[in-house]
Simulated assay, not measured.
Amino acid sequence: MEGLGTVMFDNIYNGKKVVVTGHTGFKGSWLTTWLLELGSIVCGISKDIPTKPSMFEELGLEKKINHNICDIRNLEHLKEVITAFQPDYIFHLAAQPIVSISYKQPLETISSNVIGTANLLECLRSLNHPCNAVIITSDKCYENVEWVWGYKETDHMGGRDIYSGSKGAAEIIFHAYQQSFFSGENEHIRMATGRAGNVIGGGDWAVDRIVADCMRAWSSSEHVEIRCPAATRPWQHVLEPLSGYLLLGQNLAQNIKNDGEQYNFGPRSEVNHTVRELIHDLSGYWDFNKPEDAYIVTDNLPFHEAGLLKLNCDKALFNLKWEATLNYQECIKFVSEWYFAFYQGKDDMLDLTKKQICKYHEIATGKKMSWTG
């Protein structure tokens, strides 16, 4: 990827100090890797290594960044790290990200996702130099009434589970802070929120996520249990929303009109597929006689799951000139090849991850995406 960092995102991240909270997680590891390729000086803040295996550890990222173990609910420690680093950009991904865990640990989820976000906003108040912050929430922040058209940024916040409620609450807290503290005297701070969901990609080993569950099972020659095979999701590769977050950070720095705004980042409509279809297509890289051998359907439904949830991304297209890059087949290929290489143990996973970022940029350039240069 040598040289590509100077063309992507108008070269705005090259040499800049960037904080990534939640950097040891799945999305955080991909974002950290991409920022390093863009020439950024990265400071990571996470409370722990969340999974075993861990993409963060497999890629050896600790040695390449300013790595901090810090719980975002500890305001004093968080402020100490951020103030010392003096970031130009912040991408806030740290959260309790699993719906099933929110049923078991509701207060942990609320404190991480709501108080943690408020603490990050408090830290921004204390900065006395220009900083652009992208606060990541979730597509589940919306009150889901299972309609067939996508949710717009102006639709109601809500949630039938604690995780969704916590993400809706984080959006409300963001809006209150932005209006109360950042619209006047703190104009050197610009911030916006990004909403995405149904993100898949290599390196995810979180519990109760369909792709991670499949890879854990199939790597042990077992079938995976699925609960809702007919549930439809707009699956998107992790690089899709990350390109949106990075473009949003660029636009915050270059245009004050995006300050305080919210943006959805989601895939093209043809990437809407059922859980069964996703498993059938992913299983093609594994040694099954037929796709149906890769899974069994269980009637164990320990918590409510939405049948349909998708986003309307017209605002991102209109204001940021952003749209998803990969088609469904390309997405499946990226995911499958990463995990297959990992479980074969023959590839340098950092090198493969960089190659996938490079390939994603190549495809995006062919489609004339706005951020490609």
Results as ranks from 00 to 15, higher is better:
residue 7 V to Y: 14
residue 330 E to C: 10
residue 200 I to H: 05
residue 12 I to G: 00
residue 199 V to D: 06
residue 28 G to M: 03
residue 318 F to Y: 14
residue 86 Q to N: 08
residue 179 Q to D: 06
residue 252 L to A: 07
residue 266 G to L: 05
residue 230 A to H: 13
residue 24 T to Y: 10
residue 187 E to S: 10
residue 233 R to H: 13
residue 24 T to D: 08
residue 233 R to I: 03
residue 32 T to V: 06
residue 333 K to R: 15
residue 19 V to H: 07
residue 16 K to N: 05
residue 262 Q to P: 00
residue 306 A to F: 10
residue 359 K to G: 00
residue 366 G to C: 03
residue 221 S to W: 12
residue 3 G to P: 05
residue 229 P to W: 09
residue 253 A to Q: 15
residue 364 A to T: 07
residue 237 H to F: 15
residue 348 D to K: 13
residue 68 N to E: 09
residue 68 N to K: 11
residue 284 G to K: 15
residue 216 R to Y: 10
residue 281 D to S: 09
residue 227 R to N: 10
residue 215 M to R: 12
residue 249 G to S: 02
residue 230 A to Q: 15
residue 203 G to P: 01
residue 368 K to P: 00
residue 316 A to R: 04
residue 159 G to K: 07
residue 98 I to L: 12
residue 78 L to S: 10
residue 306 A to P: 01
residue 363 I to E: 07
residue 124 L to W: 04
residue 267 P to F: 06
residue 133 A to R: 08
residue 255 N to L: 10
residue 263 Y to R: 13
residue 70 C to L: 07
residue 199 V to I: 15
residue 225 E to N: 06
residue 37 E to C: 11
residue 129 H to Y: 05
residue 114 V to N: 09
residue 116 G to P: 08
residue 293 D to G: 12
residue 259 D to R: 04
residue 97 P to A: 14
residue 50 P to M: 11
residue 227 R to E: 08
residue 48 D to Y: 10
residue 156 H to C: 05
residue 107 L to E: 11
residue 292 E to W: 08
residue 118 A to G: 02
residue 36 L to K: 13
residue 140 K to H: 14
residue 19 V to C: 06
residue 62 E to M: 12
residue 171 E to H: 11
residue 194 G to D: 02
residue 40 S to P: 03
residue 323 E to L: 06
residue 236 Q to E: 07
residue 102 S to W: 13
residue 17 K to Y: 04
residue 210 I to S: 03
residue 238 V to M: 04
residue 309 L to F: 07
residue 292 E to F: 03
residue 172 I to K: 15
residue 240 E to W: 12
residue 151 Y to D: 01
residue 77 H to C: 04
residue 373 G to R: 14
residue 56 F to N: 04
residue 317 L to N: 12
residue 46 S to Y: 07
residue 218 W to A: 03
residue 198 N to T: 08
residue 327 N to G: 14
residue 193 T to H: 10
residue 78 L to D: 03
residue 183 S to K: 15
residue 272 N to W: 11
residue 203 G to L: 06
residue 43 C to L: 04
residue 255 N to H: 08
residue 187 E to V: 01
residue 176 A to N: 13
residue 161 D to I: 09
residue 5 G to R: 10
residue 167 K to R: 14
residue 232 T to P: 00
residue 94 A to G: 02
residue 314 D to T: 12
residue 194 G to P: 02
residue 317 L to C: 02
residue 344 Q to D: 09
residue 176 A to M: 13
residue 2 E to L: 14
residue 21 T to I: 03
residue 92 H to L: 05
residue 61 L to W: 08
residue 308 L to N: 11
residue 317 L to D: 05
residue 205 W to K: 09
residue 132 N to Q: 13
residue 33 T to V: 06
residue 119 N to A: 06
residue 82 I to G: 05
residue 180 S to G: 11
residue 177 Y to H: 09
residue 187 E to K: 05
residue 109 T to L: 12
